[in-house]
């Protein structure tokens, strides 16, 4: 499904180049849920953004369903339509209603008729538990509701993969659960997911595999079982001690 080979991203920082992602290689199989954890600044977001082409990478290959993103001929818009992304800050379109947030890209990119797009939107809003908010503007919704709309918006494109970049980090604690529940349900339904999160409970419960990153590199990979009970790397142990 996703195959990353020696992905490297170098930012031209003010104090010299920053290796945000350094030779990261990993495979994500169809239906697999991979949780990426690691300290702040370890390159998790940058790696995720490389996967859907929001960031170009300096070196390596990312192959999604046989298409290499490093290939200049690859149409990134087509890739992004297949790869859903959920942001820490929700990034809903504030000038559009919830329904319009869900239908816009369906109509523009998938060329669906308005009627079909709206039916899809309503059924997704039911799925994330807020069917009654279709006509509201995002600013009238709570953080948890906004993030659930953002998930529905990404799902409306029928993506092959969903990427989550710390989807609950900007939420008040009491709203974290409702968003995680939606993600758990997605995982159960067999969605392929790459999730950057600090929610260790979620990682333990849902992840098929945990990737621990530090300073742009993959330091440790394993099942949640292995990772949370006896990680081999010192840095992983240190990190776990801090977050658990």
């Amino acid at each position: 499904m996703i195959k990353a080979v020696n992905v490297t991203k170098i930012f031209p920082g003010r104090l010299g180049p920053i290796r945000a992602v350094d030779k990261v290689s990993t495979d994500v199989a169809r239906g697999e849920v991979v949780v990426v954890i690691g300290p702040s600044g370890s390159g998790k977001s940058t790696f995720l953004r490389c996967i859907n082409g929001l960031e170009t990478f300096t070196d390596g290959h990312i192959i999604i369903d046989g298409v290499d993103l490093a290939d200049r001929r690859t149409n990134m818009n087509n890739i992004r339509a297949e790869v859903g992304m959920v942001f820490q800050q929700f990034n809903l379109f504030p000038h559009k209603t919830v329904l319009e947030n869900l239908t816009l890209a369906q109509c523009r990119v998938r060329k669906r008729s308005r009627k079909v797009a709206e039916e899809k939107a309503h059924s997704l809003l039911r799925k994330v538990g807020i069917p009654e908010k279709a006509g509201e503007y995002p600013s009238r919704l709570s953080g948890g509701q906004q993030q659930r709309v953002a998930i529905a918006r990404a799902l409306a494109m029928d993506p092959k993969v969903m990427l989550f970049d710390e989807p609950t980090s900007a939420l008040d604690p009491e709203m974290v659960g409702e968003v995680l529940d939606v993600m758990k349900q997605l995982a159960r339904e067999g969605m392929t997911m790459v999730v950057v999160t600090h929610e260790m409970g979620f990682a333990r419960e849902v992840a098929d595999r945990v990737i621990f990153m530090d300073e742009g590199r993959v330091v440790e990979v394993g099942t949640p079982e292995h990772f949370f009970t006896n990680p081999t790397e010192e840095r992983a142990k240190l990190f776990l001690k801090q977050v658990l």
Binding site: L54, M85, F87, F93, H95, L104, V109
Partner: peptide
């Protein structure tokens, strides 16, 4: 207009022009 707006739009597969026209310009216009 916050960078996250165009990123969200691009992440849905919308191209540069659609993003400008549907997402960035309406918010900028206000």
């Amino acid at each position: 207009v916050a960078k996250g707006q165009s990123e969200a739009s691009r992440s849905l597969g919308m191209n540069v022009f659609q993003t400008m026209w549907d997402i960035v310009l309406p918010q900028a216009f206000k």
